[in-house]
């Protein structure tokens, strides 16, 4: 079976010169457990930047 990223690379010459996430990276983007962890991490990072900016 053709990999998802292979499909995208083949669609367009523009697309062929960049990086495209594979199936694992795509799954992790909507994996609730992983994303809950990322939610906490991103919030902490944002709070640090917000606190440095006030």
């Amino acid at each position: 079976m053709k990999k998802k990223e292979e499909e995208n690379f083949a669609l367009n010459e523009q697309f062929n010169l960049t990086m495209i996430p594979g199936s694992f990276a795509r799954k992790m983007r909507t994996c609730k457990i992983w994303q809950f962890f990322r939610f906490i991490v991103i919030n902490i990072k944002m709070l640090i930047v917000v606190s440095k900016s006030h």
Binding site: F15, M19, P21
Partner: peptide, 13 residues
């Protein structure tokens, strides 16, 4: 690189 990656992934020229 990140922006191009997203456009390519979502098939947006």
């Amino acid at each position: 690189l990140f922006a191009e990656s997203l456009y390519a992934e979502r098939n947006v020229e």
